[in-house]
Nucleic acid binder design. Structure first.
Lengths: 217, 217
DNA sequence: TATTATTTTTAGACAAATCTAAATTTATAT
DNA sequence: ATATAAATTTAGATTTGTCTAAAAATAATA
């Protein structure tokens, strides 16, 4: 239906959209996709011809409903594959993204639906990001950032904001993985670094920078 | 490493090779890949430059060891994915090929090895074709065609020669699927059609044409 | 507001893979 | 052995996605 490249553009534009009506700029797309602005202009024209987005010269772009649908289905496939890689094939959460970037472009409705069923209809990927449904609907997750949690309240690590490989590797090393039960037991006044207790036993310290990038519920 | 298209050419040439030193003809490749001879010539030159095959004008091509390795790894990936689709996602054996044609091109050594482990190191795909190992080695399967089996000998359906969707659908409809235990109980002298008994219970008739395309052990 | 600076677009070129039509080579048949 | 047929290659064009360099539009600043 749509090419590998078209799907990647739509996904990038979707993620860059604020839904405030302000068009996504050519440069921001180019930066996000690690390509040049001239290439983006070319592709934008093509996607506009296909009614996947609205484009006015020099004004940036906004996805149409059709464009959003394609983006959401691609994100859905990406995240379902990530669950498969993590849960079934035991990939680390820092390893799943790269492979899922390829798998998300496999064309087969049947495949993704059967995979979804095989995995028990997961609602979140291994980074805690919600998986859109077949019709693009999100069950919003209402997670909060760990640096806003009050002391002595039990929470569960449910997602991350920073998805970078080094960050994910760091968290894994200090046993902060998805589903981890934890409690903030001390908030340092000076730098807002935190002392946590994991599983009611081990105590660890994390910086505010790290805490800001962890989501809990 | 190699493009989608390059892998497909190498796979097709591998399958068309007799290993008798006779080059594979341009036309046979074109026919097999449903493309034009001129396109094949272009691609052949490219693959020859990359030392994946030996090419002399008007003499056809032969894969080098390097070319065979790439072809075998692609076939390995294809067949492992077919097992996954059939065993885990419950695709019919007539449905797996098309999707595996896409999945075989995903680039990740780690992925295919972890998938192989997840599936318990299968030796054959859902059509009974052997799965090459990591180093391209085959455990040859020594199956025989059902039309050569003597009467009253218990055998197990272990593969097919004809891989077409209609043929596979037909077999499934009459309960002839991989692993089915059966016995030839009557061989018609006139047209060499067969009467079979399945699981020691149900009796069915099949034509010689069908029998020739079924492999048993 | 006039002048820079930045962003975006256009123009033209390139690489990959394909095609058609024509030319060339090899095979076949009288 | 010569003519015809079949297979293969070349030449030139096309599509998709990309790029650089230059031009045009918009934004920022003095």
């Amino acid at each position: 239906m749509y090419s590998f490249t078209e799907e990647n553009y739509l996904k990038a534009i979707y993620k860059l959209s604020d839904n405030d009506g302000n068009g996504v700029s050519t440069n921001s797309i180019a930066e996000n996709m690690e390509t040049k602005a001239a290439s983006v202009t070319d592709m934008i024209k093509k996607l506009s011809d296909k009614k996947l987005l609205k484009y006015e010269k020099y004004k940036g772009v906004n996805l149409t409903q059709k464009g959003k649908d394609v983006a959401l289905q691609t994100i859905r496939k990406h995240r379902i594959w990530e669950v498969f890689l993590h849960e079934k094939l035991k990939f680390g959460w820092e390893e799943v993204h790269e492979v899922a970037e390829q798998l998300e472009h496999i064309q087969s409705e049947l495949l993704i639906n059967k995979l979804d069923e095989f995995l028990g209809y997961p609602t979140h990927d291994p980074h805690g990001d919600p998986i859109p449904g077949e019709n693009g609907e999100f069950h919003s997750n209402a997670f909060v950032s760990l640096d806003t949690v009050e002391a002595n309240k039990k929470v569960i690590l449910s997602g991350v904001i920073n998805h970078s490989v080094p960050f994910l590797q760091h968290l894994k090393k200090i046993d902060l993985t998805l589903g981890q039960k934890l409690m903030v037991i001390e908030i340092n006044e000076y730098d807002r670094s935190l002392k946590l207790v994991l599983n009611g036993k081990i105590e660890i310290f994390i910086s505010n920078e790290v805490a800001k990038n962890i989501l809990v519920k």
